[in-house]
Design a binder for these strands. Structure first.
Length: 259
DNA sequence: ATGTCGGCATTGTGCCGA
């Protein structure tokens, strides 16, 4: 089972590019963030015609997450638990079954800028709720994947210019500590389990030809429970997608599971 | 200081979010 996480930055703007990517790279499961669409206006039938089951959790104009799967999806759940007043669409999860069932969570963690401030407080509160859900997933002792745009640069080697991000909500010490707390519960950062060298990124700003200069950051992550990590055979970043015509500012990150 | 996008409200362009 091959799973890819991809912040597409708008389904309307990415309709053709996403279609080409699904047809050529052909993930079994695509976890999409920033669909920037309501459920009613997401082009569900188009992707069903490509062979995918489509589950969305959207809102008007901003945020929004979706799961596209060639494999059966069960027990879909929308919204990160822990705050009934949170109206931002940033979390959807479902069980995907091929040979073995895997709980797959698709998340779009708040950006949090400017920091400090209200938006940063919301980010840190959201990360506390994520930690709580992560604990529940661990307790199932089943394979589970929490993947998406974390808006977290975990360590200096995850940025081309770490000093430029030092005060940013994506890299502040409180952000990194909250991410580390979740990892330290027992999750595996799939990419770092495979590659320890610097220079690998999942996001490049549209400005200043950042992609051509590889002036990027690694903020799209797949966190695995021990039972999922035991199934992982590979993890890679498909950087080439960022260089295509009219791209998202993010690029897909993949795992392959023996599941 | 700014550089670029996407989407919205609105119909020409400015604002917000990233």
């Amino acid at each position: 089972m091959r799973i890819a996480t991809f912040n597409i930055n708008g389904i309307k703007a990415r309709f053709e590019g996403l279609t080409d990517w699904l047809n050529t790279s052909a993930p079994d499961v695509a976890l999409l963030q920033e669909i920037k669409s309501q459920d009613e206006t997401f082009p569900r039938e188009h992707f069903e015609d490509l062979g995918y089951t489509v589950e969305t959790h959207g809102q008007k104009g901003f945020n929004g997450v979706a799961i596209l799967s060639k494999l059966p999806l069960e027990d879909v759940s929308r919204g990160l638990p822990g705050d009934p007043n949170d109206e931002q669409a940033r979390w959807i999860e479902a069980t995907v079954t091929d040979r073995k069932p895997v709980r797959v969570c698709c998340l779009y963690l708040p950006n949090g800028n400017p920091a400090p401030g209200e938006k940063y407080d919301y980010k840190l509160a959201w990360m506390r709720r994520l930690q709580h859900r992560a604990l529940e997933l661990l307790a199932t002792e089943e394979p589970a994947v929490m993947a998406g745009d974390y808006n977290v640069i975990p360590q200096d080697e995850d940025a081309a210019r770490p000093d430029a991000w030092r005060e940013d909500a994506l890299a502040r010490p409180e952000t990194r500590a909250a991410f580390r707390e979740i990892l330290n519960l027992g999750f595996t950062d799939a990419f770092r389990a495979r590659r320890q060298d610097p220079g690998h990124y999942s996001f490049w700003d549209y400005q200043r030809n950042a992609f051509d200069r590889n002036d990027g950051i690694r903020i799209d992550h797949l966190l695995l429970t021990a039972q999922a990590a035991d199934l992982m055979s590979d993890c890679w970043i498909e950087a080439e997608v960022r260089g295509r015509e009219r791209p998202s500012d993010h690029t897909p990150v993949w795992i392959e599971l023996n599941a």
